[in-house]
């Protein structure tokens, strides 16, 4: 290392190395060592704080939901989940809404996005804006706007109109911003327009092109969008409550007033369900390298 000189500006610049390279001056080794250890400690502290932030509530939930008589640990709260008919109904209803929401969201979003990219690219910004719009409206505003429609459906569409499953219609709108982002990033990793053109030129109809060519190559994005949608639907409370539908979160809230231990056990179970979904994604979603159009070296 060349000599260290002190510049007038206060920056330390090293002299040129014998082979011609100039380097930023390094601090003395003792200072370097202390800095390294200090940054290592900082990293550990940040890691501990983040883990604590994430895990302390979970540990708290486990601790609370496993409290038994006389200070003993018990899984009675978990066993009791299914003894509450409303809870079972709430779980089933939320899962049904989630499934409908995912199907509706994919049916609406994937063809629209593919069509936009392939046929009317100038509309991409408009579609993006429309999909992100729900982020700008608080749930209460959406409910106020949509209550008349739900009232009309309840009065005119019989059992279907009064079913909590109609919540899927509004949930599809709520999940659009997150699902759009997940699918859009996946779509940008492939040349959607060229793949669609190639498929069409070979004789495929639009439905076939989307189902056999585009969707398989957007699998990662579609899985991410689906999991986000499921997680949002399972966690949605405001709209369900204001529209007086008994979904999982509404039942958990009501149960919390009567039996908070079971209520927390259900919440913990819902989180575990979300983790399992994330695992499924990481397990089954293809890696980017397999989806993209990367090439190997030309053979000699």
């Amino acid at each position: 290392m060349g000599q260290v000189s002190q510049g007038s500006s206060g920056f330390q610049l090293g002299a040129a190395e014998p082979h011609g390279g100039a380097f930023l001056a390094q601090p003395p080794s003792s200072r370097r060592g202390s800095r390294r250890s200090a940054s290592g400690v900082a990293r550990v502290v940040i890691l501990v704080v983040i883990l604590a932030f994430l895990l302390v509530p979970l540990v708290g939930m486990i601790e609370f939901s496993t409290r038994g008589d006389y200070g003993a640990r018990s899984l009675d709260s978990y066993a009791a989940i299914f003894s509450y008919p409303n809870m079972v109904d709430g779980i089933v209803t939320s899962l049904e809404i989630a499934a409908l929401t995912v199907l509706g969201m994919l049916a609406l979003l994937v063809p629209t996005m593919v069509w936009t990219v392939v046929r009317v690219p100038r509309m991409r910004r408009v579609v993006e804006f429309l999909c992100l719009l729900p982020l700008a409206f608080p749930a209460i505003v959406l409910v106020v706007g949509i209550v008349p429609i739900y009232r009309w459906m309840g009065q005119n569409l019989g059992a279907i109109g009064a079913s909590p499953l109609t919540l899927a219609l509004i949930d599809i709108i709520l999940v659009l911003p997150y699902s759009y982002r997940a699918i859009d990033s996946s779509m940008r990793s492939i040349d959607t327009a060229t793949l669609a053109d190639a498929s069409r030129s070979l004789g495929a109809s639009w439905p076939r092109t989307i189902l056999q060519i585009i969707v398989p190559n957007l699998r990662g994005g579609i899985l991410s969008a689906s999991v986000l949608a499921i997680a949002l639907v399972l966690g949605e409370y405001t709209i369900s409550s204001l529209l007086s539908f008994q979904t999982l979160q509404v039942v958990i809230f009501l149960l919390g007033k009567r039996d908070p231990y079971v209520s927390v056990a259900v919440s913990f179970g819902a989180l575990i369900f979300a983790f399992v979904l994330l695992f499924v994604i990481s397990r089954f979603a293809p890696g980017a390298v397999h989806r993209g159009q990367h090439t190997v070296e030309e053979p000699a």
Partner: peptide, 28 residues
Amino acid sequence: TNKRNMGIVFQAYSLFPNMTARDNVGYG
């Protein structure tokens, strides 16, 4: 397009990434 029976080779790589070379060729 899908009724014209035209074979097109594009400027961009257009093979379907989820299919092998044989499946790509056999798709049509």
